[in-house]
């Protein structure tokens, strides 16, 4: 296949380049990937079988860390919090993104570019900055509570980020605010490739706005929704910075503690880097398997479509 592609235009059967040459071109990129991604992953996996403070001599303990992990209620709680955040990181942003996309692509208001850019800004801001802004917004004397007081909803005023019931929702909302921009931009791009004729046809057959969305837009955006799902799902599973800034380490109590935060605490604060590495490996396995599963179902569906 490769050799065929690389044949000279003249049609001689002699390959223009040798087979190994394309791989040479891949090498620089691969070298960087190797040094900064693959080797760290491999050494994380290796350390997960050791008892290690992060700077001592690692001591091999086999599956000891994993056995501890299975019984570690704190880890499972944290994973549960991640699952909770997936709702805010993945499902809500996709719904919101779809809604905004249909608003912005089906109407022809002037100044759309400004709206589009403005709505995308949270996505490109540094999570630390986002965290500090929202920490201030959620402050007990911050704007959100001030507004509530101003309109007479004194009873709704809460120390949002310190409240055992509401802290996780508060952190979740910030996640939605960050992620919907990504979904929206993906969907707007996807809309460009949906044939206008489909909408004309739908209109001609009397489809209302909802039906157009349901039967034309949604199927047309399947690829983009899938990408948005995978990307935001991974973001929800590995969320760290936002939680770290918003609730300073997963508080109140351990209500907003997520797996990445535990990894950080174990590895750098409690000096159990080996144990932290084991958690990181489990998290990586979860992320990779979910992504693989989603991609597998998608490609199977496509194959079925092509076959039919």
């Amino acid at each position: 296949m490769l050799a065929r592609l690389l044949r000279t235009p003249g049609g001689t059967s002699k390959p223009y380049v040798r087979l190994y040459q394309p791989y040479l071109f891949l090498l620089p990129g691969f070298a960087i990937y190797l040094v900064f991604v693959l080797i760290p992953i491999a050494s994380t996996a290796r350390y997960s079988f050791h008892e290690w403070t992060g700077f001592s001599d690692p001591e091999y303990i086999g599956f000891g860390n994993y056995r501890t992990l299975i019984q570690d209620q704190e880890f499972w709680n944290a994973l549960g919090h991640n699952a909770f955040f997936i709702v805010f990181y993945t499902f809500l942003p996709i719904l919101l993104g779809l809604f905004l996309t249909s608003l912005m692509t089906r109407s022809k208001l002037p100044g759309m570019v400004i709206f589009r850019t403005g709505l995308f800004i949270p996505q490109v801001m540094s999570p630390i900055v986002v965290g500090i802004i929202w920490r201030w917004l959620f402050g007990f004397d911050g704007p959100i509570n001030e507004v509530l007081r101003a309109v007479g909803l004194e009873s709704a005023v809460r120390p949002w980020l310190g409240d055992f019931t509401y802290a996780r929702y508060a952190v979740g909302v910030v996640g939605t605010w960050v992620e919907y921009g990504l979904a929206m931009v993906l969907f707007i791009a996807g809309m460009q490739s949906i044939d206008e004729d489909l909408y004309d046809a739908a209109t001609a057959f009397g489809a209302n706005a909802w039906q157009q969305f349901r039967y034309v837009t949604l199927p047309g955006l399947r690829q983009q929704i899938l990408v948005a799902f995978i990307v935001t799902f991974i973001a929800g599973l590995r969320v760290f910075d936002l939680v770290f800034v918003l609730t300073r380490g997963g508080g109140p109590g351990k209500e907003t503690t997520v797996v990445s935060l535990l990894i950080y605490q174990e590895a750098f604060q409690y000096r159990r880097a080996g144990y932290g590495a084991a958690m990181a490996v489990v998290l990586t396995v979860i992320i990779v398997s979910v992504s693989a599963l989603v991609l597998y179902f998608q490609s199977r569906e496509e194959n079925e479509e092509q076959a039919s």
Binding site: R135, F138, G139, F140, D141, V157, R158, P159, W160, L161, G162, D163, R248, P252
Partner: peptide, 12 residues
């Protein structure tokens, strides 16, 4: 302090 759960140390 009322709302102490939501107050940080250095500022609030």
């Amino acid at each position: 302090s009322p709302g102490y759960e939501g107050m940080d140390y250095d500022n609030a």
